[in-house]
Design a protein around this nucleic acid. Structure first.
Length: 681
DNA sequence: GATCCTCGAGTTCC
DNA sequence: CTCGAGGATC
């Protein structure tokens, strides 16, 4: 018995010592023992626990790596929602934010007329947002941000992060949810990739992806081997014995005393000038920081003031993320080639020396049109600056004139189509040059077919670019109607087509024989007739025959159809070839469904309203949401204006949300939209 | 005739 | 997302 007591005491002592060393190493960054000494302590503890398995507790440092793999992550509902932040990209937006904050606080008597608001500024780390829950001082659950309401349960993986305490130090509250960012340092990222390369495993493109990939491992033992770090920046549920806090920075200081690493280089600042100064100072050292950041965050420091400012949609009005411009890189413009679009539009595309920008390797970038190239004055052979516009689409910003080689060539628009050889023409007053080959041009034929089978048109699954390429090049498919004559037999003989995929495709084609009239009209690819105009035509005429029979005057009666569009539609249906294709489609059993004339003509909830969707909604996809809006008689538009009735903002809402706020357009979240539609759960 | 609002079209990477 | 351009509105 006596011996057992001494074992218990030794185990406790070892656990305390080890977690103390973890804290010194990962949080204070000031280790007091060597790695070997640390390992020796760990091994001793493991040996004792193995000899006395009944003494193992979940918060023992040995248990960080013990958990078994799981089949899938469970989901966790956040007790307090994890919000997103409003964004600013330039100083003016920060000034506007500060003005709003100060006006509101002065109105509430929290700020004197001549007093400047106090903020806490911190880095916006580029990693994954995580919420970690402690009950009675013990780590019980960790979840990703997910949509802000519900995230994935990553408890076993988070437990392996040595920088996070399994057990809190000091006086802890009953319940504490810590919010922070899981990141990988640049150095750790390089080391990990080297290791991955040696083992012949996949390397990660950037620290953020490496952190995300490591945390989303189903096997926590893999996560345990990855060098992840956690930095706290906020909190969710907090109850029990908690000090009486007045400021945001005060809470973070307190979190540090409980054993959490908090974001380094935080500063409490007063007034907007200091914020901008912090932003620019940080920008200068951005590249020398140990981890990647994509901006800085300003938060109104006084908690009472935060309460007064409140929230709009899902973003707090008391905080702002001030982002740095999309990362730019330079590379060499190897060549400018042209692509032929569905309408014959000739688009110059820059072929670039592969360059790593903003997390991906870019080799192509659109140059839009001739004027654009001239405006930017880029020439083949130039060293150019490339950035990812809106963080997605690569864009050539411009040349670096000093590095222009003597033999740099200007781009010359070809006079004939590179695909079919037809003349390329550019109308006097237009920006776009076009191939005049029409459907004689294989490129245009392929693109038209791709358009027709697209999701918003006939929605035929399993018919991609490669397949269309084969079918058109072999001459087997010349028009949309030909697609419907394909058989399982001949399809399975094509490259990369098994009997299974062939059968699936034929089934998909079969399903596509009864599109709605608007889908069919859109699929035809009439110039100037997109999704919206197709719908307007369908609703106005009710049948394909009626649209075909309509003359220009009749077409002009359709809302949003003017002379240019009317002429384009009339011209399309006057073309014998197009009529033949429509006849052939009919023979293949392709017929638009009857247009449902709404029996209930009473006002629907959204009649006459225009709704703009932005960001990711928690439950609905963008398409689902717009279907619901349309069904309720509303219109969905892509840009916010004074005429917009509502902006429905989801997660990561960007410029549209900002614009809505500027124009004073009401902003709803998904629940608000559902309420409007009368679908309140 | 000018201005504002929308729609259409094209696009990258994995 | 961005640009260009058609349509509506004043």
């Amino acid at each position: 018995m006596e011996q057992r007591e001494s074992v218990v005491a030794r185990i406790d002592a070892l656990r305390d010592t080890i977690s103390d060393h973890n804290h010194r190493y990962y949080v204070l960054d000031a280790p007091t023992v060597s790695d070997a000494q640390y390992d020796a302590l760990m091994r001793e503890l493991q040996a004792l626990e193995q000899a006395h398995p009944d003494l193992i507790t979940p918060d023992s440092p040995t248990q960080r790596v013990g958990a078994r793999p799981v089949a899938a992550f469970g989901s966790v509902r956040h007790a307090v929602a994890m919000l997103s932040l409003g964004n600013a990209f330039d100083d003016d937006e920060v000034l506007a934010f500060n003005r709003r904050v100060q006006d509101t606080l002065r109105g509430a008597g929290l700020l004197d007329a001549d007093e400047e608001a106090e903020y806490q500024a911190e880095y916006k780390l580029d990693g994954l947002a995580i919420s970690v829950r402690y009950e009675q001082g013990r780590l019980v659950q960790a979840a990703t941000r997910g949509d802000g309401q519900t995230g994935e349960d990553v408890t076993s993986n988070i437990r392996t992060l040595r920088s996070l305490p399994l057990k809190l130090r000091g006086d802890y509250p009953d319940v504490l949810e810590v919010r922070g960012e899981v990141v990988m340092t640049r150095a750790d990222f390089e080391r990990l990739n080297e290791q991955q390369r040696e083992r012949g495993e996949k390397v990660f493109v950037n620290p953020r992806n490496a952190a995300a990939g490591s945390l989303r491992q189903l096997d926590p033992r893999i996560t345990a081997g990855r060098p992840l770090r956690f930095y706290a920046y906020g909190w969710g549920e907090l109850s029990g014995q908690v000090p009486d806090f007045e400021t945001h920075s005060g809470v973070l200081d307190w979190l540090a005393t409980l054993g959490f690493p908090v974001s380094p280089d935080r500063e409490v600042l007063r007034g907007v000038d200091q914020l901008l100064d912090y932003y620019h100072r940080t920008g200068q050292r951005r590249d020398s920081l140990p981890f990647e950041i994509d901006g800085v965050v300003y938060k109104v420091n006084a908690l009472q003031a935060q309460d007064v400012l409140g929230y709009v949609a899902r973003a707090p009005r008391f905080a702002l993320a001030h982002k740095y411009p999309a990362q730019e890189e330079t590379t060499v413009l190897l060549d400018i080639e042209v692509q032929v679009g569905r309408t014959g539009a000739i688009t110059p595309v820059a072929r670039l020396e592969p360059v790593f920008v903003g997390g991906v390797t870019v080799t192509n970038a659109t140059l839009h049109n001739e004027d654009e190239i001239r405006r930017k004055d880029v020439r083949i052979g130039d060293t150019v600056t490339v950035r990812r516009a809106g963080d997605v689409i690569p864009e050539v910003v411009g040349p670096i004139p000093d590095l222009r080689p003597a033999d740099a060539r200007e781009f010359v628009m070809p006079v004939s189509c590179p695909v079919c050889g037809s003349a390329i023409e550019r109308p006097e007053d237009e920006a776009i040059a076009r191939c005049t080959g029409g459907l004689f041009c294989a490129a245009q034929r392929k693109q038209s077919l791709l358009h027709a089978v697209g999701r918003k048109a006939l929605d035929i699954d399993g018919l991609g670019e490669k397949l269309i390429e084969q079918l058109v090049d072999s001459g087997r498919v010349r028009s949309l109607a030909d697609l419907f004559t394909l058989t399982v037999d001949e399809l399975s003989r094509l490259e990369r087509m098994g009997p299974k995929s062939a059968a699936n495709l034929v089934a998909a084609l079969d399903k596509a024989r009864t599109p709605s009239l608007e889908q069919l009209l859109f699929a035809l690819g009439i110039r100037h007739v997109g999704e919206t105009t197709a719908r307007a035509l369908a609703l106005h005429f009710g049948s394909l025959q009626a649209v075909m029979d309509a003359d220009e005057d009749a077409l002009l009666a359709v809302p949003d159809v003017g002379p240019v569009v009317a002429a384009s539609i009339a011209r399309f249906f006057a073309e014998p070839h197009n009529r033949e294709v429509i006849d052939a489609l009919g023979q293949q059993g392709v017929r638009a469904r009857e247009v449902e004339i709404r029996s209930d003509q009473r006002a629907l909830p959204l009649t006459g309203k225009t709704v703009v969707l932005t960001g990711t909604l928690p439950e609905w996809t963008r398409e689902e949401a717009s279907r619901h809006v349309l069904a309720a008689g509303g219109k969905v538009s892509g840009s916010v204006s004074r005429k917009t009735s509502y902006v429905v903002a989801g997660d990561a809402a960007g410029s549209k949300l900002t614009r809505a706020q500027e124009l004073g357009v009401p902003v709803l979240d998904e629940a608000g939209l559902k309420a409007l539609l009368g679908m309140q759960e």
